[in-house]
Design a protein around this nucleic acid. Structure first.
Lengths: 126, 126
DNA sequence: CTCAAAGCTTACGTTAACGTAAAGGTTAAC
DNA sequence: GTTAACCTTTACGTTAACGTAAGCTTTGAG
């Protein structure tokens, strides 16, 4: 019999370099729903993955509400709420936003490259 | 004699679909510094570009303070403040962050693709 | 047994990025 | 010459995403 890997809140916190408070906050906002052992929260690898997705969203500037929408798309227990074509539409919206971000990144990197070249030019002329 | 293109604050606002208040706020945070005609602010294409960069940063989840740092790198009048190698270092930091975001986007898009395929599978089986 | 470490809830505080509103100046059109 | 459409400044309000602190419970180690 295999026992699933579990995490305490502080384990999860140090794993991702966030505070327990933040993790609890994500739960209060409906993004996580860990099981309990009495009072204590128990996190499984499912929650681990969810937290990873949340933090990925944060790095991309998504609000928790936006990330929640995305997570809900993947949540089978919510599948009845969201009609299929509605899900497909939300997927498409996310994709568009990501595409825009991708463009923004390309441009930023290009400009950084150019500016770096200018600086190095100026430095060589010292 | 050519006269440069200028913008009023509301022109610039509607151009980028933000409010005049937001533009004034960016100025108060030191990201913009439009000239004046008496009381009135006058924006040139230089400011137009700056605002574009600010909003691009916002789409990538950068704070105004972070965007300001980036803009300061491009500002020649600040060039004396920032030593060359310091500038190069900040450029490198920005590049790293953008690289991380790029990765995050790749992963998100991949997962969206997979999920979309699953949905379409499920739909075809109706 | 006891005490330190970790967990819990509740609640108030904080920062960023504006929104909203008030009160007033300027100017082009009628 | 007055009204509508903008502009200005000042100031208080709001929301998101936690931080911080207080007070209480649980638990493994010595």
């Amino acid at each position: 019999m295999i026992t699933k890997r579990t995490y305490t809140i502080s384990e999860l916190a140090s794993e991702f370099d966030v505070t327990p408070r933040a993790i609890r906050f994500y739960e209060s906002e409906g993004l996580l729903n860990p099981e309990r052992d009495g009072q204590k929260r128990i996190y499984y690898s499912k929650d681990y993955v969810l937290l990873k997705l949340i933090l990925r969203g944060k790095r991309l500037g998504w609000s928790l509400a936006e990330s929640k929408q995305l997570l809900d798309l993947y949540d089978p227990s919510q599948q009845n709420q969201n009609q299929y074509h509605q899900v497909l539409q939300k997927i498409e919206e996310s994709r568009l936003r990501l595409e825009q971000q991708r463009q923004d990144i390309e441009l930023m990197v290009l400009e950084l490259d150019e500016h770096q070249a200018r600086i190095e030019q100026a430095m060589s002329g010292t």
